[in-house]
């Protein structure tokens, strides 16, 4: 009787350790996935960049600059908006389009007459934006404003992108 009981105990102990190992693997892999995942801030960063540009080009419902390439263009855009892309030239992208209000279909977010387009260095990864959680994060923002002299209605489209995969994605 005693021998049988000990045999049963041994079998139970094997099962017990098997259960422990399964639980361990589950907990360790769960915790590793949770804490191993990088803290991805690209979404917030992309929104902050769009907000910064919006504040730069328009204030109080009016444009800060004349709709003229001599005043705002792709070369001076970063400096007049007080943006510094140093050390992250390959990871950040910003583009601003100024459209004539009458040429825009607000519901479809499509405009036909572009008054001006300014952008930073072209990035190859723009095509990959928002495809999955590891892809670069891009944001688009549309808003209405008046020209600097208040005579023309303008629709502004701001498109921003943040790659920085190395710092934000495993």
């Amino acid at each position: 009787m005693l021998i049988n009981k000990r045999g049963t105990d041994k079998v139970l102990a094997v099962y017990w350790f098997a259960i422990l190992i399964i639980v361990t693997v589950a907990i360790v892999s769960g915790v590793s996935i949770f804490y191993g995942a990088q803290y991805d801030v690209r979404d917030v960063e992309s929104i902050a960049l769009a907000n910064k540009i919006a504040d730069c080009v328009s204030k109080g419902g009016k444009m800060n600059y004349l709709m003229d390439e001599k005043e705002i263009n792709s070369d001076n855009f970063l400096s007049i908006c007080r943006l510094n892309f140093a050390n992250q030239e390959q990871d950040l992208y910003a583009e601003v389009d100024f459209y004539d209000f009458d040429s825009c279909s607000i519901n479809d977010k499509k405009c036909s007459v572009s008054l001006l387009n300014v952008k930073t260095f072209t990035q190859s990864w723009i095509e990959q934006c928002n495809l999955d959680s590891k892809s670069p994060v891009c944001k688009e923002r549309w808003f209405y404003t008046l020209s600097k002299d208040g005579q023309q209605e303008i629709i502004i489209r701001i498109f921003t992108g943040v790659n920085k995969a190395g710092e934000n994605v495993n």
Binding site: T24, I27, V28, V31, S32, Y35, Q38, Y39, V41, V44, E45, A48, L49, N51, K52, E167
Partner: peptide, 30 residues
Amino acid sequence: ILIGFLVLQGGGKIVLEKNYAKQIALLIDS
């Protein structure tokens, strides 16, 4: 050993450093 692993994972130095650096950069950006 399991509890030790969980404690080490939760408050890791490297995780904290990365999070603080990113949050400070975002504060400055905003």
